[in-house]
Design a protein around this nucleic acid. Sequence first.
DNA 1: TTTCTAACA
DNA 2: TGTTAGTA
Length: 135
Amino acid sequence: MADEIRRNMALFPIGIVMKLTDLTARQIRYYEQHELIVPARTAGNQRLFSFNDVERLLEIKSLIEKGVNIAGIKQVMNPVSNDSEEATMVSAKSEETRRELSEQQLRRMLKQQLLEKKPGQTSMIQGQLQSYYKR
DNA sequence: TTTCTAACA
DNA sequence: TGTTAGTA
């Protein structure tokens, strides 16, 4: 379990994360505002991201590309119970399970929004919904 | 030079 | 989201 410690060890500043994730600093900070990620801070209030944070951002990125909005991602992603080791071990153990679940939940969520006919969110993902259910 | 927050186009 | 301003 020394692995989880490393994965959650805050190492890189936003500049490196930008290159690693192909996201803009603006986006990364924006996602933080919406609590999709909770990077650590240096004494100088500088953000420090861990490998886990980067993976999380990549997940967020893929969801965004699928047309899911922030609210939707919040539903699919696990609540941010980050930091420390207890939460770390728990989340690390079910990491793979969580990903499979995310796919299922994603479809489920997309289907729900499609049926709900909520103008706001639905319109943003209809294109993607079609690729999921058009068959 | 890099990053941060806040705010406006 | 992009981008800019003024800092730390």
